[in-house]
Structures are given as structure tokens and as C-alpha cells.
Design a binder for these strands. Sequence first.
DNA 1: TAATATACGGAGGCCCCCTCCGATTTGGCA
DNA 2: TGCCAAATCGGAGGGGGCCTCCGTATATTA
Lengths: 191, 191
Amino acid sequence: MSTTESGRKPRRADARRNYEQLLATAHELFAEHGTDASLEEVARRAGVGIGTLYRHFPTRDALLEALVGDRFDKLHAEAGRLLAAHPPAEALEEWLRRFIAGTSTYRGLVTTVMADAHGTGSELDHSCARLQKAGSDLVFRAQHAGAIRRDVAAGDVLAMAAGISWVSGQAPDGDDRTRRLLDLLMSGIRL
Amino acid sequence: MSTTESGRKPRRADARRNYEQLLATAHELFAEHGTDASLEEVARRAGVGIGTLYRHFPTRDALLEALVGDRFDKLHAEAGRLLAAHPPAEALEEWLRRFIAGTSTYRGLVTTVMADAHGTGSELDHSCARLQKAGSDLVFRAQHAGAIRRDVAAGDVLAMAAGISWVSGQAPDGDDRTRRLLDLLMSGIRL
DNA sequence: TAATATACGGAGGCCCCCTCCGATTTGGCA
DNA sequence: TGCCAAATCGGAGGGGGCCTCCGTATATTA
């Protein structure tokens, strides 16, 4: 639903080139400095005027959406697949692991993901909302299957996972820690 | 250890006035906009030149330290008191509750608290380090008393609490959620 | 090759960070 | 009370970022 299909007339060649270059450069800078990286720096490194950047991506969120939209959509789709292939609790755990990995690729991204809801109805908002819904569904399934406690709110589980994702972004080395914290969360919700 | 006692000669009256005014104003703005609030705005609202602000607080962290140092010291001291008055697990839970409350008074504060360690050896760093140590001690005590799992790292418990604090700062209304998430954490570490 | 829709790029207005130093105020002393 | 040195103030100024606007350049098409 994101970058599939063309919008209208095909864009000019230079426009497409710049678009891709901006995306690649933004990815680098966001990965290094988080989602607050300077957009002027992005334009500079992409060898493009700042005006060009803003024409392609009117908003920081638009740029972010272009960067993570597909990945989030895949994550969303993967929920069903995991559920079909594993017991509900395992599916949930695995999906949360990927959720955490996905939302911590850029420091600050998880903030955006959780801050949506009251958002401006942007494309990015929808991606995030769908993501949260996918997670909630997995929680419900696991609860229905009697694999985890029923007295925890699905939103709380997601929030906790987001918290772990945040922690994960604070200390870049903490790959092991992330795993342990997810274990901790699962211990808390398992029967 | 923070604002007790005078340093050297007593400061001039206007200096003291401005210092207090800046502190009060900064508290307001940080509470409203988080620790990234504009310092120029702080100076403006305090009715003081920007130079004055920077003379009193050379660094954003210095200002933060002046604002939360005492509270953090109290929190640190309270660990022992709680331990004396309650069973170890309860002491830990109650302290974590206060830790979360304390680190989420300003959005973004918890980031600073956890980001220390590799810090610049500032006053604020020490406050945060002491805070973390106090928390770790409580975890150790609870483990030693057989009240919680021994196979969880104290640092992980703190990190998780920090994650909850972060969540808490994202949705200002989430006071209930905060309590539930702490419950979840405790469920995860209890035997 | 010429015409035109598209796309480019950066100057400019506004805000913030932080430093530096001339102007001002305070506290003590004669 | 009046004066002076030390302490303190305040804001201009250099550097950077965000975003908009519009004159200029270029890809495309006929």
C-alpha cells in the first residue's frame, strides 16, 4: 500500500534519481544520528538543494514513512504468517522481537511509532496504527489460546515492547540486553 | 551534597534572585516541553538576559542537575529507609515506583538518567549513577532474600523501569498504565 | 530543435545555541 | 553619605537548523 504502483504520470528521470539518493542518504544519517538528524545535512550529502528535499518529502515524517513504510507493512503481514507457523505465545514473542528490531533501527523512531494515534492522519500514522493493531491481535490470540495471562491489556504489552525498544536505542551495544528484556516481558505475561 | 552549604563568599543579592527565578522558570518550561525546552525562552520568561542564564548554568545538564539533584539524592536515601520498613520485594517495587515518577517529571529526563555512565563526569552524572546504584542494591537485596528471581541482572531491572518511565512520558495521561506496567515488570521478576 | 511542464536550488526569514565583553549594579568602606 | 572595585548583567554576533518561495535550469515531447 506504500510504494506499490505509480501515482500518475511517471516522474522525470532526475527527480527519481534525487528521490532515491535522498532516501539512501537519509537512511545513513538517521541510522547514525537518529530521526532528529539534520535535514539540511541530508540534502547536502545527497548533493541536492534543500528545496529539492522538501519537495520530495514535505515533512520529516514523510521521509520517515518512505524509509520505514515498507518494512512496517511487512512486519504487519508477518503477524499472520507467524501465527500460522507457531504456537500463539511463540508467535507473539517472535513478532515482538521483530517489532523491537524494526522500531530501533533509528534512535527516536519508536517514539514516533507510539506517538501516533493522535497524529495528523499522515501515511506514517496509518503504518504505525496497523503495526500496533497487528501486535494487539497477536496478544489476543495468545490470550484466547490460553497461552498468556488474560488480565493484561494488549496495549500494555505493546507499550512495554516499545519501552524495550527505547532502551535498546539508548545503549547501541545492548543486543543481548534487548533479548533478556523481552524474556522478562514474556515471563511477566505467561501464565 | 547538592545545594547544601555555601560555596565561598555569599553571592550578590541580584545573582541569588536571578538564580532562583531561572530555576523556577526552567522547571515550568521543562515540565511543559520536556528537557529540550528552549533555554532562550527560559531566560526570556525569567526576565533575564541569555548571558545570565549561561553564567549561572553553563550547561543544560547543570540546570537539570540544579533542578533534580536534590530529588534524586532523596530518592537515593529513601532506598535504605524502604528496605528497613518493608519486605525486600515490596521495598523494591515501591522504590521503582518512585524512581519512575521521579524520572518522568520532565519528558526526556529519563534519557539523561540512563545515558550517564559514559558521561562527562558532571555532577548530574554522579546523581544518576548513585540512583542506579541504589536501585541495583535493592534488587540484590531482594534476590538475596529469595524474594525475586536470581537469574535477572540488576541492571536489566533498572533498564526496564527506565523503559516504563519512558512510556510514561509519552502519553501524559498514562498514570494507570504506568502502574500496570510496573506490575508486569514485578510479575516477570518474582519467583 | 523548440516549447512547456517539471524539477532544481538556495536565499531569506525565523528560531536556537553559546560566547564574549562593554555596561551596570551591588556591597563595603572611608 | 558617597565612592570604587568586584561582581554581575545583557545582548550582539557567529554558527546552524527549519521551512518557504520563486527565479532558473532541464527533461520530455512533438
